[in-house]
Design a binder for these strands. Structure first.
Lengths: 391, 391
DNA sequence: TATACTTTGTTTATCGGAAAAACAAATTGA
DNA sequence: TCAATTTGTTTTTCCGATAAACAAAGTATA
């Protein structure tokens, strides 16, 4: 049981100080004291510790406001680095970020074969390349985070990833042994949600749902600035809720799942039967091209996808009453065609109390949310080790 | 911002001590120390304060385990009382409970007219009757909690209660002025969920969803032993998620809402067209009677309601990955007819990872969950005032 | 029956950390 | 030049948890 003692108090306050600096740097000790409510002396002491630990540095003096000039502090985001990877179904996107989540290096590789024998060596290569390119720093690379398109348990085991055709894969152990670094494995949508929460469109919301619209639909639920994982860590499979009780059979066992009507798969499937696209190679980018050229079959198709997105979102919103919905992953490219049908459906189907304070946003990072969120998981694990929490 | 200081430490530890006593009374100071990890001296001090505040009392000595006999402590649940009310669509159920949630007095009255002019005086009467019957105690009645069938905002305002035909009602203010006691207003399903979490079937789960199957379907979401309310306090309207995108129009604006297929309304509506029940007054109790007598039209109807309950539950489970689902309110009386169809549908539609550790339970209190949960809200608010938290 | 050992609960001493107060340093403005 | 102000450190005080010592009350055993 977690009891209260001085250590806990210090951890709480040290976190407050560090977070204040991160959020408002450059900032003086005096200002931190005013913002946080902590005593000046307390702030001074904690700042000194953080400086010894290399997490905070003095940058010089600021402007006087009628007295002694303040010494400005900033968060030393270059004290260490993290690696974040989005293991997609047909690509690997890997980034090296600093402690603030800024991308320093980036590697993107296509994935033609998803068998573990192929993917694992590729992953190791990619990680090694990024490690080799890291700048010198106090703590070096502090961890590796990976977002995967499937459900994972609390120990980082991949239970089931249908689109990769994986079952029961212990990627975490494999990589930890190889690199001697802590590895975090999480579902791709959960990682994306976290990425948006820490660095992206969800920075100012405490309660939102991130909808990853890719090959399928995954979701990440942020409650009180924390990722909700559920009892076994597999909450958020809202792509598989029924929106048509007697609809098409889904691979998951259910019928009429949302993602059968509103996802990249659904889009490509439906595009196949458009007369104007017969005998052509169909891809997302190609459809976008067609729409931009004014193809009068593709545009209504996009609208229909948007309407079904709205129907699913109605469920999400009735369930969570979020401040915000963030739509990410590949279909966020369709933003311009989706946004109106979505709003139209929501206006029709939602009670006004749910709709009035709600904002529907598209991902700031497009496809990078997942890799950034994964890197952020590693950064947090590192800080937690150091008796500080950031988020 | 909530900073860490000694006061916080004390509050945390005092809560731990009180909760340990509540959970394991009778218990000695030494045992509390072992269970909680707090030092003996710390426990002694905090227990003394709790005794001064009348929340804890010594009951005598226990058995020796080879040394000095322990002094046994218990939670003085009679130090105060709370009033909890379930404002149903056609009844008012009010209870007077002790601080542990044990029912001391109970009043149930039918409600023929839901206009505020009728309901408000009745409510006041019922509360006054319970107040008059309260035993003598240190703190008296500490608060009033009310569960209502509608959505409420964070200030206890009833925004919209379609079945009562209420909009924008400030019940809280009205009653607080009348009784000079703190009043908590909450949605009926949220209160029920809380009741089950504190005292009922959900006592041993940290993550569960309570499904209130009454005239409609409401839900209460418990995450980490806490009620999730959403951004505006109106999360959990899962009775209104679409399970048939092009289905019947619902009063909420949406189409194909779950509660149109699996609720008391849906049941009664469908029962009307059964040949064997023509020209008869149809009610829930009457249908149960028929089913018990082996009516071969009613039993399949119950099964169908169960199947649709299962379809909705699939969505709930894919979303939350809960440890437990608790089904309460009036349709919990149909437990014996619903449970098999529900399990059958879940087995078919859920991935095994969601199903394997999940338990589907029916409410321990039947219809009383809401009143008990409402009373519990008041008790907690009272303790929070006293620098202690219980839950 | 005496004595050694255990367990319980209180008292005392110590320690860590926050806050308040005092102070030193740096700057502005009159 | 000096008063007023702001910043940041040092000193003192206070609070609460913990550890250690102790007192009280029991059991077990020779």
């Amino acid at each position: 049981m977690q009891t209260g003692d001085q250590e806990l108090v210090k951890k709480i306050n040290k976190s407050i100080v560090l977070q204040t600096i991160q959020a408002s740097s450059p900032i003086s000790r005096a200002q931190i004291s005013k913002d946080s409510g902590l005593n000046k002396a307390t702030v001074s002491g904690l700042v000194n510790e953080l400086m010894e630990e290399q997490f905070v540095q003095e940058i010089g003096t600021g402007l006087s406001s009628g007295g002694r000039k303040p010494v400005m502090l900033y968060f030393n985001k270059k004290a260490g680095y993290a690696i974040g990877i989005d293991l997609g179904v047909n690509y690997i996107l890997a980034v090296l970020t600093d402690l603030q989540g800024e991308v320093i290096e980036k590697i993107e590789e296509p994935l033609e074969n998803t068998s573990l024998d192929v993917v694992l060596p590729m992953l190791k290569n990619v990680v090694q390349s990024l490690m080799d390119r890291k700048p010198f720093s106090a703590y070096g690379v502090v961890g590796i985070g990976i977002g995967v398109p499937g459900i994972t348990d609390k120990n980082g085991r991949i239970l089931f990833a249908p689109n990769l055709n994986w079952e029961q894969v212990n990627l975490k152990q494999e990589l930890e042994e190889n690199f001697q670094l802590p590895v975090v494995i999480e579902n791709e949508a959960k990682a994306g949600a976290h990425g948006e929460n820490i660095h992206g469109a969800g920075k100012s919301s405490r309660n939102f749902v991130y909808i990853s619209m890719g090959i399928g639909i995954g979701t990440g639920i942020i409650i009180n600035n924390q990722l909700y994982k559920g009892a076994n860590g597999i909450a958020g499979e809202m792509g598989h809720f029924t929106i048509d009780a007697n609809g098409k059979k889904c691979r998951c066992g259910n019928k009429g799942c949302w993602e059968l009507y509103s996802s990249e798969s659904a889009l490509l499937e439906q595009a196949k039967s458009l007369p104007s696209l017969q005998e052509r190679e169909i891809s997302l980018d190609m459809l976008i091209q067609e729409a931009e050229n004014g193809n009068t079959e593709v545009i209504p198709l996009f609208h229909r996808i948007g309407e079904y997105a709205g129907i699913g979102l109605t469920n999400v919103i009735n369930t969570f009453n979020p401040e915000q919905i963030i739509i990410g992953n590949r279909l966020s490219k369709l933003q311009n065609w989706l946004i109106n049908p979505i709003h139209h459906v929501l206006e029709q189907r939602l009670l006004p109390y749910y709709y009035q304070d709600l904002s529907i946003t598209f991902s700031q990072f497009g496809i990078e949310s997942c890799a950034l969120g994964s890197a952020a998981f590693s950064v947090e694990a590192f800080f937690a080790e150091n008796k500080v929490t950031v988020s």
